[in-house]
Amino acid sequence: MADDLKELKIELSKNGIFTTTLEELYNWGRKNSVWPLTFGLACCAIEMIATTMARYDLARFGAEVFRPSPRQADLIIVSGTVTKKMAPQVVRLYNQMPEPKYVIAMGACAISGGPFRDGYNVLRGIDRYIPVDVHIPGCPPRPEALIHAFMTLQKKIEEQALTGANRPRHLQADLPSEFPVPQFGEHGLEPTQNDEVFLAENGNPLKVLQ
């Protein structure tokens, strides 16, 4: 929202008039009802479960409804080690979610392979195949860290513009909402990463040095 509009809004609220924009209202609704997928991979999933229980109470953020079907979910929390055998299923689940959809990569394994990185069976980070919105380091991250990641995601949703060139993927018809599922190869997954998704901070694709 432009700055002069914001000022006008503040000015109006001082006089007892409440105004909003469609964008604000839409994003406010979206960010407070993010429904995660009932999906856990390893020990991080235990922390995720703890986050949803009474002590940490993820319901405060409108995310208490863990959906058992990807068709009803907005968020996939990749909580734990992604093995190479599981990776195609994770990508497939993500593909089955309707837009707008978000990904939190939770814990050292999900973001990079973690302590099992050198294993023959472990994917070195789920961001090789699907676009990750929030990465959480930690082994496992505490529930507070997951809540922080969740609030970061809420902030990200809040700031998404409905119009303009920077509008999010789900509002751009020509951008993909599904990503190629890696295949089981003779020595590992093929391809080893999706160059469209696996990007450096500056937007350049990350390359494997042979």
Binding site: K85, R117, D118, Y120, N121, R124, F184, G185, E186, H187, G188, T192, Q193, A200, E201, N202, N204, P205, L206, K207, V208, L209, Q210
Partner: peptide, 29 residues
Amino acid sequence: ILMWDGFVDFPMRKDYVPPADDILETGLP
């Protein structure tokens, strides 16, 4: 039982070399 059927290597053998997909060119300055 653990790896998929199309897999050809035997990863617990001592002479197993995992495929190189580790070192990354970051493209960052």
